[in-house]
Computed example of a mutant assay.
Amino acid sequence: MAIPGGLLVKSGAKLAIKGAIKASKYLKEPAKAIAREAKKKATEAVDKAWGFAKGLFGGGKKSGTVHFKGKGNPVPTKAGGGSDPNNFVNEHAKKHMYDSKRPSTPNRSQYGEDVDVRQLRQDTMNNPDKAYSNWPGNPNNPNKQRITKYYKEYDGNISTPDTPTGSHRVFNNLDNPRSSSHFPYVPRN
Rank of each mutant, 00 (worst) to 15 (best):
S63G: 11
K40S: 13
N140P: 06
S179W: 15
Y26E: 12
P164I: 01
S159D: 07
P184N: 14
V46G: 00
A16G: 10
D155N: 15
P177C: 10
S159C: 09
N176F: 03
K40N: 14
A20W: 03
I3G: 03
E29F: 05
G166W: 00
T77A: 15
G6S: 10
G6E: 12
K61C: 05
M97A: 09
S63T: 13
K54S: 13
S83Q: 15
L56I: 03
F52E: 15
M97W: 00
K71M: 13
A33F: 10
A79V: 13
N172P: 02
R36D: 12
A38P: 01
F68T: 13
I3Q: 05
L7S: 10
P187H: 15
P76Q: 01
A23Y: 11
H182N: 15
P30R: 09
V170L: 05
F52G: 03
K39S: 08
S109L: 03
N73M: 08
R102K: 14
A16E: 04
T65A: 13
A2T: 09
K10E: 11
K78T: 04
K28N: 04
Y150K: 00
G82H: 00
E91L: 05
H92C: 05
Q145R: 11
E91F: 08
V186F: 01
R188L: 13
L8C: 06
E29H: 03
G72I: 15
A49K: 01
G12M: 06
P164K: 02
K95H: 07
K25V: 04
A35L: 02
V46H: 00
R188E: 13
K14S: 08
R36Y: 05
I34G: 04
V89D: 05
G12F: 04
P128Q: 01
E91R: 08
D116S: 01
D155H: 03
G64A: 11
G60K: 06
N90T: 06
R178I: 11
D175G: 01
G137K: 07
K18L: 09
Y98C: 06
Y185L: 11
T124K: 02
P30Q: 03
S11L: 09
K41L: 14
L15P: 00
K101M: 09
A16P: 01
N127D: 07
A20G: 13
Y151E: 09
P4E: 12
A20N: 13
N86H: 08
G64M: 12
G19C: 13
G166A: 04
D162S: 08
F88H: 07
Q122F: 04
N176A: 08
H182G: 03
K61D: 14
F57E: 07
G80S: 11
T163D: 07
E29Y: 06
K61V: 09
A42K: 02
G58M: 11
R188V: 12
V66N: 06
P76R: 00
